Amino acid sequence: MATIISHALIPLSLGLVLNRDKYPWRLIIAGMLCAMLPDLDVLMFKFGVAYESPFGHRGFTHSLAFAAAIAAMLTLLSRYLKTAKARIFGFIFIAAASHGVLDAMTTGGLGVEFFWPVSLQRYFFPVQFIQVSPIGLHNFMTARGLQVIQSELVTIWLPCLVFVSLINIYSHQRTKP
């Protein structure tokens, strides 16, 4: 998996380039939390659920169905999130689904169950360039964890920064008289 903090960068980056009147900070923060949410499945290890189980790590919580369910539930908060239900659904769906996308680009694990419950097949993308993060804080606070952070700075953080910067430069250029 990518580190939990790096998962939040995708909705944050999108939120930084979208119209703030239509995509308020409350929605962006909700998106960031929903992008991290699928990794709560690591708690299943405490209950003896095997990694390869549909209810194990990178199982149903990493699926497109889970992303859609979370997005649908958050549309009920449209008044609190101060935007239209369709915008909430789209933004939250992309935020939650981005978690599995990043994990499918990692160098380890068993793949991602994108199509649960229709299929229990796990997938990786053909290009896997994000170093897999150790699971658990104890395992993460090692030289290996530092190596993963350094890798993610180049493979996730830098591309997000470039994306936001380029969109903002383009938008600024378009609004010049």
Rank of each mutant, 00 (worst) to 15 (best):
L40G: 12
L33G: 10
F47K: 05
A35V: 04
L33N: 06
G48D: 04
V42S: 14
W25N: 11
S53M: 02
L27G: 00
M44P: 01
V42M: 15
L27M: 00
Y51V: 12
L33C: 12
A35I: 00
L40I: 14
L27C: 02
V49P: 11
L37H: 06
C34L: 01
Y51R: 14
M44C: 13
P54G: 11
M36L: 11
S53I: 04
L43S: 09
E52Q: 15
L40H: 10
F55G: 07
K22W: 10
L43D: 03
A30Y: 05
K46E: 11
R26F: 03
H57K: 09
D39G: 03
P24M: 01
D39P: 03
A30V: 11
F45W: 08
R26N: 09
W25F: 09
S53T: 03
L37A: 02
V49M: 13
L37F: 14
E52S: 15
A35L: 01
L40P: 07
M44H: 05
E52V: 13
K22R: 14
W25T: 14
P24D: 03
L43Y: 07
R26A: 06
S53G: 11
I28W: 00
V49W: 10
L27N: 00
Y51K: 14
L33P: 04
G48R: 06
P54N: 12
M32W: 02
M44K: 08
L43G: 12
M36T: 10
C34R: 00
D39R: 00
A35Y: 01
W25S: 12
P54Q: 11
S53P: 07
I28H: 02
L43T: 10
Y51C: 10
F55T: 09
Y23N: 06
Y51T: 13
A50R: 15
G48H: 06
A30I: 07
G56L: 02
G48L: 02
P38R: 05
A35T: 05
S53D: 10
H57C: 05
A30Q: 01
D41N: 07
F45N: 12
P24K: 04
C34Q: 00
H57T: 03
K46A: 15
K46V: 09
I28S: 00
D41K: 01
G56A: 08
A30F: 05
